[in-house]
Amino acid sequence: MSAHTLSKTASVPRLAHLPLPLFAAPMGFGGIGLAWREAARVLGAPKLIGEALFAMTVALWLIVTALHIIRALHSPASLLGDLKHPVRSGFTGAIAIGMMLIAGGVLPYSPSIAAVIWFGAIGLQVALGIWFLRALFHTPREAATFTPLLLMPLIGNVVAPIVGAKLGFVVISWMLFGMGIALWVSVQPLLFGRIFTGPPLPELLRPTVVIFLSPPAVSTVAVANLTGGVGPLALALFGYAAMLAIMFATMIPEFRRTPFAMSWWGWTFPTAAFTVAALTVARSYSFPGYQLVLWGILLGASLILAIVSMATLRAALNGNLLRPE
């Protein structure tokens, strides 16, 4: 999706309805970029694909950020409403995570620039995490507002070590990892309680349950990078991620019946993160036919990203992307 496409379908007043969840787009592209870059090492996949996806990640993040800045200047009340919304505000976490993924993309070319981006991302991530937790402490939530999106402003702390360890910031990365794990195990039981006992998620939010796959998948890669290999903890985390991935795969027919909404982007980063985790584990533990399995996971995650991207582009061209929710 390009700035030209959006500019044809939007005037400044309509940007008041620009979806905050659009920040999940660079997050999804960055995650699959990491997956293809890892696949180049493990499976001999073309290196160009991963690098092209990272270039797309940078372009998307800049475009979406610029559009939201314009939105903030012309319709500050609408953006503030999203930031205070008990559900949509969860997508703020995608802003910092997108920056972290961009830092990972830049790392092979300029470690110094990657470090600047990474520190900016973790600064924003910690600020968002504190702001989000303060809101939870000060304003008791109804059960209906507990959705998997609550994990997004928190799991960025687990994403950060994936890049931070490669940059050499191991101490800070371990601290961030500890923060992320503590928040994950604190918040997830509350979310499971809502999922298991109700009220049921609205139909358009059903795809967001796949976000539950992100923390264990990302943590697998983070631990492997921090410890220099796939040890028992990384394997344990990957086992949990694999169980969730298989379960969500069996739910695909159900998800296909869900009308398009920005919540579909909730599928993209988790499946990309699981792909990276599977490729990371495969470097240390392989089995007969593992390459075929890994190619299937990689292409499946890539197909999901392509489907969601095309659906979003179609919504933009039809004028359905920039309208009141």
Rank of each mutant, 00 (worst) to 15 (best):
P140S: 07
P202R: 02
M152P: 00
L191I: 04
E142N: 09
Q188A: 11
L149T: 01
E203Q: 11
I155A: 12
E203W: 03
T145C: 12
F132M: 12
T147L: 12
L191E: 03
L204V: 12
L150C: 04
L183N: 01
E142T: 06
L205G: 05
F169Y: 02
R134A: 13
W184G: 09
I155P: 07
L136R: 12
T147D: 13
T197K: 09
S186I: 08
F169H: 04
S186L: 04
G180R: 15
G129N: 11
F177I: 04
P161H: 14
G193Q: 01
F132T: 14
G178K: 04
F196E: 06
L133Q: 01
V187N: 08
F137D: 11
L201K: 05
F192E: 05
P202E: 06
T145A: 15
I181F: 15
L204S: 07
M175I: 09
E203A: 07
P199G: 09
I130R: 05
F169M: 07
Q188I: 09
E142Q: 14
A182G: 08
I155V: 15
A144G: 01
F137I: 10
L205Q: 07
M179E: 03
F146T: 05
I195N: 04
G164D: 05
F132L: 05
T145P: 11
G168S: 09
S186V: 03
V171L: 14
N157P: 13
L201Q: 00
G180F: 11
I130A: 13
W184P: 00
L176P: 02
L150A: 10
A165Y: 14
I130S: 13
P148W: 09
P153E: 02
P199K: 10
L190M: 14
V187I: 15
K166A: 08
G178N: 09
V187F: 15
A135F: 08
G198W: 10
L201H: 05
L150N: 02
L136V: 14
L190N: 00
L136I: 15
V163A: 03
L176H: 00
T147K: 15
L205N: 01
N157T: 15
F177W: 10
E142A: 08
F137Q: 12
L136Q: 12
P189I: 07
V158E: 02
W174G: 11
T139C: 14
A135R: 03
M175Q: 08
L191K: 03
Q188W: 06
G129K: 01
G193V: 01
W174N: 08
P202C: 05
V163N: 03
L133I: 10
G180E: 14
L167S: 04
G178A: 05
A143L: 09
G168V: 10
